[in-house]
C-alpha cells in the first residue's frame, strides 16, 4: 500500500500517523505539503489530526480550501481511499466529502482521554480486521468533535450502513455517558457511500504500540494495508 499524508499548516499528528502507517506497511508514507496539487501515485490519502490554521474561523474550514484539496477530491471521485482523522474529519466535512459537521463539544471543554468505539461494520477496507460489534479503545483529543447532520442525512447514514464507529462504553453499551462530546446518535466516524472515504474523531494511530498502552488501533492500519496491498 502506498500512503500519503497531507500536511496542512498547523497539523500536529502527522508524525503519529506516519508511525502507525509504517508499522502496518513497512514503508514510510509520503508527506504532501498542502500547496501541492499532485498526489503522485497513492492508494491511500490521509488527512491527519491537529489544528490546521489554528482552528480559526471554524475547524477545518480554511484547510478545506487548500490547493491540495482539489487533488484529494479528484482522488476520492476516482474511488481512491481517504482516511480523515480528527481535524482531518473536520476538513473533509467542510470540503463536502462527507456529510455533516463537527460542532463544539457539548461540555464546551477540550476532551483528552481514551474512549471506546463500536465497530458498526467489518466489511470495509478500514474495518476488515475488526469484528462487527467489536469494542476497541482509542484516545481522543478534540474540542470540536460533536458530530451533527440534518435528520435526513443521519437517517440516510444509518439506512445505508455508513456509520463506521459509535461511542460506546467498555462493555459495548451505546449510552449518553459514553458520548462525551454530544455527537448525534453517538456517531464517532462515518463512511462515504462507496465505503472508501472514512472520517472519525478519535485517534487509532495513537494506540498501535503496547508501550503506549495498547494496540487497539492497529487493526485499522493492518486492515488497510491488507486490503490495499499492491
Amino acid at each position: 500500500m502506498r500512503a500519503a499524508i497531507v500536511v496542512f499548516p498547523g497539523i500536529n499528528r502527522e508524525r503519529d500517523m506516519a508511525i502507525a502507517l509504517e508499522r502496518a506497511t513497512g514503508r514510510k508514507p509520503r508527506m504532501i505539503w498542502h500547496k501541492e496539487t499532485d498526489l503522485g501515485g497513492t492508494d491511500l490519502v490521509v488527512l491527519p489530526g491537529g489544528f490546521s490554521y489554528g482552528d480559526y474561523l471554524r475547524c477545518g474550514a480554511m484547510a478545506s480550501l487548500s490547493p491540495v484539496m482539489t487533488a484529494v477530491k479528484a482522488h476520492a471521485a476516482r474511488g481512491g481511499y481517504v482516511l480523515a482523522v480528527c481535524n482531518g474529519f473536520q476538513i473533509v466535512t467542510e470540503a463536502g466529502l462527507l456529510p455533516g459537521a463537527l460542532l463544539r463539544n457539548a461540555g464546551l471543554r477540550f476532551l483528552s482521554m481514551d474512549c471506546h468505539l463500536r465497530v458498526e461494520r467489518a466489511d470495509t477496507a478500514f474495518t476488515g480486521q475488526y469484528r462487527k460489534g467489536q469494542i476497541f479503545r482509542a484516545p481522543m483529543a478534540h474540542g470540536d468533535g460533536n458530530y451533527t447532520a440534518s435528520p435526513e442525512d443521519l437517517d440516510r447514514l444509518e439506512g445505508e450502513g455508513l456509520v463506521a464507529f459509535r461511542y460506546a462504553e467498555a462493555d459495548g453499551a451505546i449510552s449518553d455517558k459514553a458520548n462525551r462530546n454530544g455527537s448525534a446518535r453517538n456517531i464517532a466516524g462515518i463512511f462515504s457511500p462507496n465505503l472508501r472515504v472514512c472520517g472519525l474523531m478519535p485517534h487509532p494511530e495513537n494506540l498501535v504500540d503496547p508501550l503506549m498502552g495498547g494496540t487497539d488501533g492497529k487493526p485499522l492500519f493492518d486492515g488497510l494495508a491488507a486490503a490495499l496491498a499492491a
Binding site: F110, S112, H203, D209, L211, M212
Partner: peptide
C-alpha cells in the same frame, strides 16, 4: 483528571 483531561497528553505518539 478534570484538568489533565483537557490537555492533549498523547500527541506525538510517544507518551509511555
Amino acid at each position: 483528571a478534570w484538568i489533565t483531561d483537557q490537555y492533549d497528553s498523547t500527541v506525538g505518539g510517544q507518551t509511555v
